[in-house]
Amino acid sequence: MKAFVAAALFSGAAALTAAPPDLGVPEPHGWIGTTSQWIQGVGIFFALLNLVLLAVIWSSLRRRGLTSVSRALLFGGIMVVPVVVVFLATAHGMQKSMTVEACGACHVMEGHVRDLTNPASDSLAAVHYKNRYILQDQCYTCHSDYGMFGTVGAKMEGVGHVWHNTTGHYAKPIKIAHPYSNTRCLTCHAGAANFLAKHEKDQVLRLMTGKDSCLDCHGPAHKPQETQEAMR
């Protein structure tokens, strides 16, 4: 039991002390990890605890049958702790599925991610990335609509992407499924001083109503082919 607790604490601590993936900046004094790291650490602890609990119940059922102790353990091991584990794993999975690494996990997206993270690229996505206009989850921020249904829609589309990638049912070069909505750009840019200074009033109105696309002037958003050729 002691070894289990030590292993669980170690795995939790390892998750909490994991270095941020993209920054060389030292953590501030008293840093105790992000919410996401805590969710991961506590989730691993509860998952291991649950597996031990289930093993104890299994063995107890075989040796002594259904006793009052095993009944209490069954309730905890099947109805309480797994709910905590599933909740924490879902929260962790949701958070991690928004990262650039998750989007770049499919081979077909490697060119886009390479262009995004290429400091020499002048594509719209790369400019946003290298200047840290968007701090994290850059793919997700620009490719999901805002609000609850935007998140749900993005997750449903993500399941479709996994399916297409697994079955290989997609045409190359890959293209965005729907015309890119100006709302995604304007959620940050509309009302910004430099946006208002650089765009005429009627131009702003056309962008707001979707008659013009931001990408007409500021595109292309990605240059996966050019980055790939430059790296050869």
Binding site: Q40, A47, L54, P82, V85, V86, L88, A89, A102, V162
Partner: peptide
């Protein structure tokens, strides 16, 4: 118990190493 254990193992895998497939 087996069903719960399988769900927890899936959750543990996701917590340790998240990939779109595991998720």
């Amino acid at each position: 118990i087996l069903s719960t254990a399988l769900a927890v193992v899936l959750g543990l895998t996701l917590l340790i190493e998240e990939t779109p497939y595991v998720f």
